[in-house]
Design a protein around this nucleic acid. Structure first.
Lengths: 244, 244
DNA sequence: CGAAATCTTGAGTATAATCAAAAACGGTGG
DNA sequence: CCACCGTTTTTGATTATACTCAAGATTTCG
């Protein structure tokens, strides 16, 4: 059980400074651990959930379907993230949440989280901070989608994923597991699948990354970050990332 | 003084339920009221402000400049909004904040806000909630920029502004003051100025809106909302909007 | 009234979408 | 281990959307 929650504590610690006791309080919350298959909805837009989840293993994304049936992936969540923590205070979901891969999720009741926040203002702040970081990421996605060129957009998303995975210990060397199809990249970036493919070829051709078989290898971080116009400030990390 | 803060209380009440005492506590916070000219920066990316502001009058936007010198407007803020409330817990600004019009701003020290939150968990929740609504808006902007067609994107932004202004009492009839140039609309939507112009002509041509001289008239809300694919859930309003 | 800003128009170009089909890959069962 | 199926990736050709550049009209404000 503690092993599983490690990743939550690691994530909270990557964006906030908390004591060992506070970490323990978080790790010891009563949690229902659930395994889910890939491509399942965890919650849907307009639902009113009474609990939030922590990702213990796997990849999750939030998305919306527009009136014309197009899907926009709004955020990508990795181990340690709490993709619907917002529902603690915004009772109605404004996005849907789906699993990208098979996942192990820990569900925590809102009442439990509320009690924890009331009794420990420092933890409340850390959780608030976590939702603020999610907001900052969403803002950066607006910039990405609105202003950056094709290759820049793609590169920026790769940089972000790479740094966030590094922050929770999911990068080995300069390589990590990224289980996204090109169609999913497209829905995250506002690209067609075809355009994702061609953009990736461009990044590959320049020797910046290798992306195949769900594995991302960063071959030239410096140049990739330059193409991406990547400034990690918006991730508000409190841990050092060596290559940054 | 109380008159000026009314708008903050009205805004908090538009997205959260608070008692009269709590409203009074918010309205009575020590605040430094400052008048600013249009087109000035309030804070800049990478700054570490020690206070947050409330907009008492005027329009404010947050923005980032990319490496290629393009500006993306990330959010638009109106009277009652607290555009940099996030800086209470995310010490380094990840966006810049500028005035779109001459503004009257109320600055509140972070220590004051922190004390208020510590002593009154319900107010803390209301403020947390306010930042969560900002996040929800940013997510919707990702959807807008990523998936919607030109006219849809434009229409969606107009719908959002109209509803948010209505929620704080700044709509008379079906008309409101929207002091944005077409260039600013472009930077908010990821459009060129020329494209904003042509898209607006299309919406005008269909008899949906009139937008001239900083005044927005909604001529056919139903059709506008349909073109926009507008679902106000993401604004998480706790007040009724008549035409919705 | 005049200067500056903003809006509008036109023409040409670039980026990215769409459509369609072929190649490669991954997992499964025989 | 290999043949097969569905998924994913890749390619090509065409089309559409939106950008750029440039100039003219209009509005705003001092």
């Amino acid at each position: 059980m503690d092993d599983q929650k490690d990743v939550l504590v690691r994530r909270v610690r990557s964006i906030a400074t908390i004591s060992d006791e506070e970490a323990a309080a978080i790790a010891n919350l009563p949690t229902q651990v659930v395994d889910m298959a890939a491509d399942m909805d965890i919650v849907r837009e307009h639902d009113r959930p009474s609990r939030s989840c922590v990702i213990l293993e796997g990849f999750v994304y939030s998305y919306k379907i527009t009136g014309e049936g197009k899907r926009q992936i709004v955020s990508i969540f990795v181990a340690g993230d709490q993709p619907d923590l917002q529902s603690l205070h915004l009772k109605t979901m404004d996005v849907s949440l789906g699993t990208m891969t098979p996942c192990k999720l820990g569900f925590i009741k809102h009442e439990v989280l509320e009690d924890l926040c009331d009794s420990n203002p420092r933890i409340a702040k850390a959780l608030w901070r976590a939702t603020l970081v999610d907001a900052a990421v969403a803002r950066e996605w607006v910039v990405n989608t609105g202003q950056r060129s094709g290759p820049g957009r793609m590169a920026h998303l790769l940089c972000e994923l790479f740094v966030r995975l590094k922050a929770v210990g999911l990068v080995e060397g300069m390589s990590c597991h990224v289980p996204m199809t090109q169609a999913e990249f497209g829905d995250a970036l506002g690209f067609s699948t075809v355009h994702v493919n061609r953009t990736l070829q461009e990044l590959r051709g320049k020797g910046l990354v290798k992306l195949a078989g769900n594995r991302l290898d960063v071959l030239d971080w410096r140049k990739l970050a330059e193409v991406a116009d990547f400034d990690p400030t918006y991730l508000h990390l409190t841990v050092e990332i060596p290559f940054l």
